[in-house]
Amino acid sequence: MRFEGTLTTWHDDRGFGFIEPTQGGQEIFVHIKAFPAGTGRPQVGQVLSFEVALGPNGKKRAQDVQYPVRARRLPAPRGEAPAPWTLARALIIPVFLVLVYFVAKRWGLKPYVLHVYAGASVVAFFAYVFDKSAARQKQWRTPESTLHWMGLLCGWPGALLAQQVLRHKTSKTSFIVVFWLTILVNVVGFVALHAGVDGLLMLRRLA
């Protein structure tokens, strides 16, 4: 059975790359020997037709690669489109800013808190950037627990923006559930830091 896909990664010096199947699923390893002779060096963005076989290590790999008649060389991908904004994702940062304003008016805001959120968000954002790049290059990944800790320690706004802009970590349900729990714990800690237990009880009644 033949499949079609786009060559998304190619290491010309090592003679291999990866094909993203049109129908979705995991990327397929492809070696230069699988390409027809005399067709030149493979280029990222090319549309390919191929069969799938199991390699010596038991992993899927492309074989008998061909260039479909309708195929044309596509420009190298510039990156995925941003992830769609759900209502919760669109509202969480504005709602948190309203909460910050309320806390500041009611109990006063500790001067260093916003600096901590800003700095932690920048660190978290670039952690997602590096992890996304590592995922594309099949390199060492940042542990999910590390990303969650960054979110818990005030970096969740930057992490949320990175998830949306990079379309990264937005489809794995278990990761998203824990991510939202880190936001909840962080926001509760923010209120408790400024208002104490009485403030938490008051916000609970308002909720």
Rank of each mutant, 00 (worst) to 15 (best):
D64F: 00
G79C: 06
K110M: 09
P84D: 14
A53G: 11
D131M: 09
I28N: 12
D131W: 05
P94A: 01
L114T: 14
V122G: 12
V129I: 07
V103E: 01
Y101N: 09
G55N: 13
R89P: 07
A120G: 05
L99C: 06
A53I: 10
W107R: 01
F130A: 05
V123G: 11
R106L: 10
V47E: 06
A90I: 06
A127R: 03
R41E: 14
V65E: 06
R72E: 12
P84R: 13
F50L: 07
L99I: 08
D64E: 10
L74F: 05
H115L: 08
P68N: 07
Y128F: 15
I93A: 13
G119F: 07
V69N: 03
K110D: 13
Y117S: 00
G38Y: 07
R106N: 12
R78M: 05
Y67L: 10
A76F: 01
V116D: 01
F125V: 04
V98A: 14
G119V: 08
D131H: 08
S133M: 07
G119T: 11
E51N: 01
N57Q: 08
A34R: 07
V116C: 09
A81H: 06
A71Y: 12
S133C: 03
A127Q: 02
F125G: 13
G45V: 13
Y128W: 13
K33P: 00
V47S: 08
I93T: 02
P82E: 08
Q46F: 11
K59C: 00
A88S: 14
F130S: 14
K105G: 15
L54S: 09
D131I: 10
A53M: 09
L114V: 09
G119N: 08
A37D: 04
V98I: 15
Q43W: 08
A76H: 05
Y67H: 02
S121Q: 02
D64I: 00
A76E: 07
G38Q: 04
V100M: 13
I93V: 15
V69H: 06
G40R: 12
P42C: 07
G108F: 05
E80H: 06
D64W: 01
F96G: 15
A90C: 09
A127E: 02
